[in-house]
Design a protein around this nucleic acid. Sequence first.
DNA 1: CGTTACGCTGACGTTAACGTCAACCGCCCT
DNA 2: AGGGCGGTTGACGTTAACGTCAGCGTAACG
Lengths: 136, 136
Amino acid sequence: MTARTDDHMTIRQMCDAFEVTPRTLRFYEAKELISPLREGARRLYTRRDRARLKLILRGKRFGFSLEDIRQTLDLYDRQGTNLPQMEHTFALACERLAIMEAQRAELDEAIAELKTELAAGATLIAEVKRGGTAAA
Amino acid sequence: MTARTDDHMTIRQMCDAFEVTPRTLRFYEAKELISPLREGARRLYTRRDRARLKLILRGKRFGFSLEDIRQTLDLYDRQGTNLPQMEHTFALACERLAIMEAQRAELDEAIAELKTELAAGATLIAEVKRGGTAAA
DNA sequence: CGTTACGCTGACGTTAACGTCAACCGCCCT
DNA sequence: AGGGCGGTTGACGTTAACGTCAGCGTAACG
């Protein structure tokens, strides 16, 4: 029974939970995307690490690079007492939002096109099935 | 005046139109994503090539690999008189549609989260600006 | 008729994002 | 004491998606 002591998870528990390899987690750590605690040499992943990893994997699915993702991760856990820093972060987030909304618009368009194509395909298949190989 | 003879475009015209490099176009050709005509040795890109390139670039923005894209490009220009082939293509398109709709759902979620985060950030910035460094 | 510009074909280099492998450590079990 | 498991650190390999460079052809320009 691989229990989850307190709030921390081992690397293997993380791998099972997120379907990634240990190598991937260590790689992300090397790239400073996550920064788990240490119990001796072992890594211990906290709630924060899990939240970040979730965002990382999501970002990847949207086609962002790890570097892109790294820069936007800070948007989600502000530690800022620093005003100019906060404003910069805010501006960055706005840009990011604009990008994602544009992406959404394009995605909708692509989906619509594909649906059209699908409908045409279905019709065509039905015709072929009914009329054999004969074309009008 | 780089005219566009008939319907064909040179590689440079393509590059200017789509903001890609010649290398990229030749690379896509090597990967059999596009197949321009030849005038001697020179490549001539047709309307079909342009349509495909548009889909390719769009696919990339959604995070698909070129190989993924290559397989789905055939969905858009069917030449099928072959029924089993058509049905296979159809099935593939359905899967693709499901993936894209899932992606849209996730994108919507991500956008919502980011907006929440943005609102919180805006509030925080406003407070800091009003109250100085003092926290409640 | 030289040369400048565009295009073509290899061939090798590069970057991101990991995979793989070796060697090592600490812990638990028998 | 030995063995296995889980974890760690390098170090090198790999794949995708191009970039870059050399060498060649040819069409147009002055």
